[in-house]
Design a protein around this nucleic acid. Sequence first.
RNA 1: GGCCCCUUCGUCCAGUGGUUAGGACGCGGCCCUUUCACGGCUGAAACACGGGUUCGAAUCCCGUAGGGGUCACCA
Length: 544
Amino acid sequence: MTELADLMFPGETASRAHWEALYPPRELPAGAWVTRFAPSPTGYLHIGGVYAAVIAQDLAHNSGGTYFIRVENTDAAREDPSARAQFASAFRYFGIESDERTDAPWGPYEQGQRAEIYASFAKALVEEGKAYPCFCTSEDLEALTAQQKAAKVMPGYYGSWATCRHLSAEEHVERVTAGTPFVVRFRAPEGSALRVTHEDLIRGPIAQNDNRNDAVILKSSTTSPRLPTYHFAHVVDDHLMRVNLVTRGEEWIPSLPLHIQLFEALGLPLPGYAHIAPLMKVEGSSKRKLSKRKDPEANVEYYITTGYPAAALRIYLRGLANGNLADIDFAEALATPLQMDRMGVAGPVFDEAKLQSISRNYIAELPPADRLAALEAWTSEHDRDLAVLLASEHGNAIRALELEKQLDKNPRKDVANWQDFLPNYRVFLPSAYTPVTDAAHPDFAPTSVEVVRAMIADYSARYTQIDDRDAWFDHLREVAKDHGFAPTTGDYKRNPEAFTGSIAEASNVIRIALTGQRRSADLFLVCQVIGEAEVQKRLRAVLG
RNA sequence: GGCCCCUUCGUCCAGUGGUUAGGACGCGGCCCUUUCACGGCUGAAACACGGGUUCGAAUCCCGUAGGGGUCACCA
């Protein structure tokens, strides 16, 4: 078979031993996992990818091992040129960047640059008669499938259907010499067991029929560089890069027998496998895998531009992987190692409402300075206008957050993502706030225009900055009383006819004047943060 | 269709032969309250179905149904 192999791989082809020596085993403590995240640059990064990456990274780091990213660009036709940049920023945002840089000894980290390596291994297989050239065209293959369909047998390239497998050595040599394009197929072992069982680290034993397909391992000889299929790249790369734990989506389970055969044919040790259940989406009365094409929320860009803190998403995703981490203190949840045997096998529905809840709590728990710093870090990349605004309003913003924390026993949880910030805090930032200039504004209802004007004029005239909440409200109460409002809700309820309105309505007049909203932040807090001059400015704006 | 995997409240999980089947998110109510939130209390809400095994089954076994995945020179 040496002659055939030389013809199929003309020119210099390094030996397998060369690569084995170049990529030495890693020196790591016993039990350390070497994992990888292997995205294909065929489009934007999927939220399921972040999920897989978080798991792989966590398993490696908590075992004293290493995690890296390998780009699986073996399909030039489907490659999306914008994917790299998006990947890079997403990895950075979510903190799932590779532990290893391009200069690490186990690179390169792009399969497109590893063609020579695959050639060495494929050639070795041909030399041993474990792989062969297949000259079937796509038309041949279609015809084959059609025949198999008509004959109602299993589709595939196997047994007597595998025409090129049964070509004589001379014919192989002859056709390769003639320059007939070919792919390299793996010669599935004959007489192997009908059933194979493999122990998955997440799912336990998985039993299935053994592979008998002569899978393609190297794509068409007409392309350059000659790239491998996923199956072959997985086996060669994960071995040479010394990966000992393969975490990947469960869609790979059906091809596991092939992968095991490939490892065996090459005489390589099998890594551990952990097949992760996919993230799902509810559609109608059933669930389906989150789809890149159909679901905008599958794109990680959505979470980044919306401004969900990476930590919040991480907490949520880790809780999905290990349910015991879903309802505990965040710091503890983040510090607890993920356990493979606690991972679900079903495929959880990704629930943005739950993410929002986690994110709200996470943000609320952040100390004010940290919260603002995180917000500003986000705006610098994702919201230039807000970044500029915050640069000039930094003082008011930090004051609002700090006073809010100081004044309220329990933190508000209005902000689930950074896009929620401005709508909720605009009222504290004078340069972003547009005062109400109309005493007839409908939100003053049910209070009449006359009363609104009189009361605001009076409140403005008598206003002084009071630093005690109760004293401040007592003052408002007095003004309200002078304009015919009941001083307490109780008074009003007992005798509504006697009053212009309740204290709630009086408060509403001031609320609209100061915040422009019927639902607003605490009025005392607003006054404290914006200060007397701004309070007066807003009151007078209503009076015109 | 073949093969593989899965099935506890709407959702995410606990529960591994004896529990009033628990929590979280979401949803409803009440309380707190100058609005909205926050917080507290509270309510509705699930073991897919059918057979076994067993004194006893959400838990073990077998079927059925449903869902997901996969059968490419895509990953």
